[in-house]
């Protein structure tokens, strides 16, 4: 089961990454490109950005330490990511008719360092303006753990989305932020 995983969600006790300015710029462009795939609902291409063991996590409460002893708004592995995308693409996905349209603004991108597993930990701020029947504004601190690819570039091992309204009364959240 998903809550029996041994997955390191920790983003503290990091060591310096020592990235060049050009490498940092590359990371930033990676986050922009990821956001754009979601804006354009190009979900298959978005799925391909992930490591096979990668986790998408949206905690339910501020400073949530763990997904194992507390509920989460999302705690999706590769299987559940594929299931969600299959549903979003299904012709009878009633709650996506009309679909959610959104634009994402990614800013304040900061390289925090490397974790024990050698993943690059990157912090950013996400502003999402979403439209489905009415306008909704979502904002989050996002923490990515990126795994380097041998051929160059990055894959997502963890995307932690800390919504500012994580513990509020919420409408449906169906699409990844």
């Amino acid at each position: 089961m998903l809550l029996d995983l041994d997955f390191d969600v920790g983003t503290r006790d990091l060591r310096p990454a020592g990235l060049s300015a050009e490498a940092e710029r590359q990371v930033e462009r990676f986050l922009f490109a990821e956001a754009r795939l979601l804006d354009e609902r190009r979900f298959e291409a978005w799925l391909a950005l992930w490591t096979e063991d990668g986790m998408y996590w949206m905690p339910r409460r501020p400073q949530q330490e763990s997904p194992y002893d507390h509920i989460s708004l999302f705690w999706d592995d590769a299987m559940l990511r594929r299931v969600r995308v299959r549903r979003l693409d299904h012709p009878r996905n009633w709650s996506q008719q009309p679909p959610t349209r959104a634009v994402r603004l990614v800013g304040n991108v900061t390289i925090d360092g490397l974790d024990d597993g050698g993943n690059l930990v990157v912090s950013s701020v996400l502003q999402v303006t979403e439209w489905r029947r009415e306008l909704r504004h979502l904002a989050a601190r996002v923490t990515h753990k990126l795994a380097g690819v041998a051929a160059g570039g990055w894959q997502i091992r963890l995307k932690r989305v800390d919504l500012v309204q994580c513990d509020a009364v919420l409408d449906n959240l169906e699409v990844y932020l």
Partner: peptide
């Protein structure tokens, strides 16, 4: 917890419909 995440979360794939 897992059942809650999958069925009863605002992020569920089931409940929104």
């Amino acid at each position: 917890l897992l059942y809650a995440n999958i069925i009863n979360s605002p992020g569920s794939n089931v409940m929104p419909d």
